[in-house]
Design a protein around this nucleic acid. Structure first.
Lengths: 198, 198
DNA sequence: CCATGAAGACGATACGTCTCGCCTCATGCG
DNA sequence: CGCATGAGGCGAGACGTATCGTCTTCATGG
């Protein structure tokens, strides 16, 4: 028995693909993730439901693709002026601004929530969105270690999590505001934790 | 217009209440949160659907009550042997064991995910589960400050988050194992961050 | 000319409301 | 005191709606 003939990607309609992404992002912002439906996306995008089900297994997958389609470029990584503390403060402030942007919030929060609840989806979420975001910090910290600005015995990965997790947790659970004062405090604490021994 | 007569709590069936909690916790472990249904809980508990809808607005609310009904006692707080580092390591190891328990995982993860996605629910989740858990650490850190074992200028609340967020984030997104070695490393890092200046 | 696309019919679930009798109380009358 | 009465929660499940994911039809365009 044939394993369900795969669709021919070369014949795929780019127009429909974009329309589906636009509709998904617009709708999740308007009605939230739980009331986001595949039927709603199809209607808004002006495509048949089958066109969505042909290419994606779930609304979460559509949203993940729609979201990464716009953001999937983490560029050249963090700036490296030679001053670790200043670089971290600068970038974390910018990240806070981004997370405070409503257009960014709705889909990202929806994906984080769906990822927390669904083990399969979480793998994709983690590898496509979470890990690349952490990796740029890990790289910057490694550079700092080589420059002698950070304890060579500290694990850059764990240090990056020490900095980013309180930030994301606070945002995800809405337990506090992401102000520049807060992110600066976070950087100060982490700097004390990973400072090289004298 | 009358505001929808509230049910009479004094006539409530304790038997049904317990049966609903048991059914909800069992089912969320068997089929997961998304496939958990109010109909399923009612059937398993041997109660009518209306009995659930009379007392709770959603399956999330049922699960939250079911979960806190068993766990809502945070006792006397953290141990205080006078050695902050040892106390934190001890408790965080125990917490890791708890979070590695499958019976604990399913409902707690479901609630965290639902809380992340739903603003209204997140308030209840945060105040009923998250905040009390953080508060006991904050109290212990305050005691340490008074004992001169922690920088008096550090904010105990932010320090507690610095310790707990990487832990919960790692668990929630399944980005790594919660081993004793990991929790000890976390405590070491946080201790360096909040150590009193000499 | 044939796979993809738009449209929507279709059966299956689960939703949340509702309507039944049934049972258990508190109240009040004989 | 003792038994009728009535209010209200309870188990059960029918009901209409919404959305699911599949399937069918016809048109289109590469």
């Amino acid at each position: 028995m044939a394993p369900k003939t795969a669709p021919d990607a070369s014949r795929r309609s780019e127009r429909s693909r974009r329309a589906i992404f636009d509709a998904a992002l617009a709708l999740v912002g308007e009605v939230g993730y739980t009331r986001l439906t595949v039927e709603g996306i199809a209607a808004r995008a002006g495509v048949g439901k089958q066109t969505i089900y042909r290419w994606w297994p779930s609304k979460a997958a559509v949203l993940l693709d729609a979201f990464t389609d716009g953001v999937d470029d983490y560029g050249a990584g963090l700036p490296d002026t030679g001053d670790l503390e200043a670089d971290l403060k600068h970038v974390l402030r910018a990240t806070a601004d981004e997370f405070n942007d409503p257009a960014f919030q709705a889909p990202y929060r929806a994906l984080a929530a769906a990822g927390a609840g669904d083990e399969e989806l979480s793998r994709t979420y983690v590898s496509r969105l979470l890990e690349p975001g952490i990796a740029v910090y890990v790289n910057r910290l490694r550079a700092a270690q080589e420059a002698g600005q950070m304890d060579p015995d500290a694990d850059p990965r764990i240090a990056a999590e020490l900095l980013l997790s309180p930030f994301s947790q606070r945002w995800l659970m809405r337990t506090g505001e992401l102000t520049h004062a807060y992110t600066d405090t976070l950087v100060d604490l982490v700097m004390r934790a990973v400072r090289p021994p004298e």
